[in-house]
Design a protein around this nucleic acid. Structure first.
Lengths: 211, 211
DNA sequence: CAAATTTTTGACCGATTGGACAAACGTTAG
DNA sequence: CTAACGTTTGTCCAATCGGTCAAAAATTTG
């Protein structure tokens, strides 16, 4: 029930310290990118010495890779949950809400992913072309079904998914800009509820004035 | 009519070489980020030696700063053009189209900007809180006027602007992912026209099925 | 307890980095 | 031609980088 082949067989201390390092590395990598981050920064953030850190992860890349693998699992979970059962518009609305909640609750993960993609996805391109494409194609087919059934308006399902990704992750990746533009008053904690309300209207009804 | 106080007084060679360097630096910075890029990479891309490059820009930061200043001018031009004259829906539609064209024609500039914001905008935060906020607030007021006049549906103008930024720049910043998901067939040159059609429908009519 | 094992550290290494500098080279004006 | 000025380069440097290693310290095991 846990996981997987080839048991890592780790001690209690290894478990804890590796977790500590990954937490610190998420913070550092997500704000400085891979090349912009140093092992020393991560070690300091994790409260240990550089050689000590390298005792748990032999190479800088190993930390990044581990982080990336974990990220991708949780990151695509909301899309996996998009289901054919239930009302299409409700289904889409909760997908948007879930994605927005992830941007609010896991902004560092979002930025880590954005950094990787921005730089051409050197480490995860195969996954994008394989696993991700399959998943999106599958869900696009579901959405197409809804369109054929007249449940939602006809459009391009792929670009629809892109637009949901873009609008929700924007609040994590461009957080500094969003805060700066909204100012201290509107840029406070309420901005995610405002965003949720806006996105719901945008995706459901668009901007055309009602009758 | 050109510009500004404190004349740089540059020779013809200086003009040309500085331009060459900035072009090369845009390429390198936009794909590797500031810290991830080396002066040597830029020098090679510009076809000159590292000391030679440093003759034209004394520090790595100077190149980045110059690039950033130029970027911001052209980057906000479409929003500045958003005008109170003309039909609101048409006005918004052409703003979206212009932004999407910029993502298509200047993806490196978009990625350079995204890199800067992702890392907390250390170099341009004052500009975001000052110039950018003023501009957005001004345009938000224009949009609010349209809403009061019943020309477009009532929503949050700020988040509307964010969503336009997010959806259009997505095609530059996340280009690798978009291509990977669409595959070679749909990921070709037509993807920007597909995106334009989709975004137009999304922003005008949303997803609710017609009658 | 003591032996075996795991964890931590200080010192160190070669490679790369941003940048300095003087000497060489090219260009142009008189 | 030549002096003045602008351009280019090879060499060098100190700092930082990712990573190694042996030895010390802590922990677990018997």
């Amino acid at each position: 029930m846990t996981t997987s082949m080839e048991a890592p067989r780790r001690t209690r201390i290894q478990q804890e310290k590796r977790e500590l390092i990954l937490e610190a590395a998420l913070e550092v990598f997500s704000t400085n990118g891979f090349r912009g981050s140093t092992i020393d920064q991560i070690a300091v953030a994790a409260g240990m010495s550089k050689p000590n850190l390298l005792y748990y992860f032999r190479r800088k890349e190993d930390i990044h890779e581990t982080l990336m693998q974990r990220l991708l699992d949780t990151w695509l979970a909301p899309l996996r949950e998009l289901d054919d059962i239930g009302d299409p518009l409700t289904e889409l609305r909760s997908y948007i809400r879930r994605k927005l909640e992830m941007a609010r609750d896991f902004p560092r993960e979002s930025r880590l992913f954005a950094n990787e993609i921005l730089q051409g996805a050197p480490r995860i391109k195969p996954m994008l072309e394989g696993e991700l494409k399959s998943l999106v194609d599958e869900k696009a087919a579901v959405i197409k079904g809804w369109m054929r059934a007249g449940k939602i308006a006809r459009t391009d399902p792929w670009h629809l998914i892109f637009s949901i990704w873009a609008t929700t992750q924007h609040y994590a990746d461009f957080d500094v800009q969003v805060r700066a533009v909204l100012g201290t008053d509107r840029g406070g904690d309420g901005r995610f509820e405002d965003a949720a309300r806006f996105l719901e209207q945008l995706f459901l009804e668009g901007l055309k004035p009602k009758g």
